[in-house]
């Protein structure tokens, strides 16, 4: 509770944020290229992006919530719900795909609204509120499917994760998932930089009381952030289902990865600082790290340890940088 409200929200320095996440990513990707030189080929880079796309999109959504000072732990469950619901509702009928996609987004928006309303009006801290919806949504998804995959996803749905256009000019191949990714990032960027929403989100995250006094609609800002996050989770679910098909654990553990990605990219937890590039390059860095550890053939378990250590170091380094700047 800062005694003197700062009315002017802190503007992030977009250049700096871009540099931090980008540098980590470039270093990690260079390391990948050393271990496995053909990752420098455009085809494999596109494949890397295709596989990173779900986490990237999820991180962009999570960033909205983090900017406003909250967390969204329900996204993994929402992604799982999207996969299971798609498979049950479409049930192998390609004509149903588009209508079902609409339904999935409606479900996502509903979960986002619940999260936002509970946080904004019932005053439940977001970490608890979204923990609750995580349990709830996961339980609903499992109860609906009976605990195991059901139904079937037709090819036009699977294309979101599998279709790759070959012989594309300049880049060689282009996966549909990468197109979806670019579209989503562009919209998310526009939302924060092309509208008034970005400033409001930063203001709310920095100091909600001050933002309110300055006339910012705090509750609406919060609720929109959760809705955006849920929409990103549904999109992630669609890509995951497309990539590898139906499973009951499609979104498991993604929520913490998305939060970690934003933080590695330089976004500040509890709000006030960050840009869409924090999410993008943070997620790319994290995914490059996973890929690198895989390629190096380390035992699976130690990969967790290294991930943990990197997380601490990345955040520690950001802290240290910021302190020096002050």
């Amino acid at each position: 509770m800062t005694p003197i409200p700062q009315v002017a929200p802190l503007r992030p320095s977009p250049k700096l944020a871009l540099n931090a996440g980008l540098v980590i990513f470039v270093v990690l990707y260079a390391a990948i290229a050393v271990v496995q030189p053909n990752y420098l080929e455009p085809g494999l880079f596109m494949n890397f992006l295709r596989r990173a796309a779900p986490l990237l999109i999820l991180a962009c959504g999570q960033l909205y919530v983090i900017l406003t000072g909250g967390f969204d732990l329900s996204v993994g469950a929402v992604a799982t719900l999207a996969v299971l619901a798609a498979s049950i509702l479409i049930n192998g009928d390609p004509d149903a795909t588009w209508a079902v996609l609409g339904t999935l987004y409606l479900m996502g928006i509903a979960v986002g609204l619940v999260n936002g309303l509970v946080v904004a009006f019932l005053k439940v801290p977001s970490i608890i509120a979204t923990l609750g919806t995580m349990l709830l949504v996961n339980g609903l998804a499992l109860a609906w499917s009976g605990g195991a995959a059901r139904g079937d996803l037709p090819e036009n749905f699977r294309n979101f994760g599998r279709l790759v256009w070959r012989d594309v000019w300049l880049i060689g191949s282009l996966p549909l998932a990468v197109v979806v990714l670019c579209g989503f990032v562009a919209i998310a960027w526009w939302g924060l930089n092309g509208t008034v929403y970005g400033k409001r989100a930063l203001a709310v995250g920095d100091n909600p009381r001050a933002a309110e006094l300055a006339g910012t609609p705090v509750a609406a800002t919060r609720i929109i952030a959760f809705v955006v996050s849920s929409i990103s989770a549904v999109t992630t679910g669609i890509l995951l289902g497309g990539f590898s098909g139906v499973s009951v654990n499609a979104g498991e553990g993604l929520e913490l990865q998305a939060i970690a990605a934003c933080v590695v990219g330089g976004a500040q937890l509890l709000g006030g600082r960050g840009s869409i590039w924090s999410a993008v390059f943070g997620a790319l860095s994290l995914f490059a790290l996973f890929t690198l550890l895989n390629l190096m053939g380390l035992p699976q378990a130690l990969r967790d340890s290294i991930q943990g250590a990197i997380l601490i170091v990345a955040v520690g380094a950001t802290m240290w940088r910021n302190r020096r700047r002050i």
Binding site: Q36, N38, Y39, L44, N47, R51, P54, L240, F243, S244, G245, V246, S247, N249, A250, E252, T291, N294, L295, G297, Q300
Partner: peptide
Amino acid sequence: IGSEFTGSDRAKTKSIVEDYINRG
């Protein structure tokens, strides 16, 4: 050539196999 853990996760399974294929 390898013994990998998938955690019963389809996406992870597919990625692991892709990685082996990409490695040639």
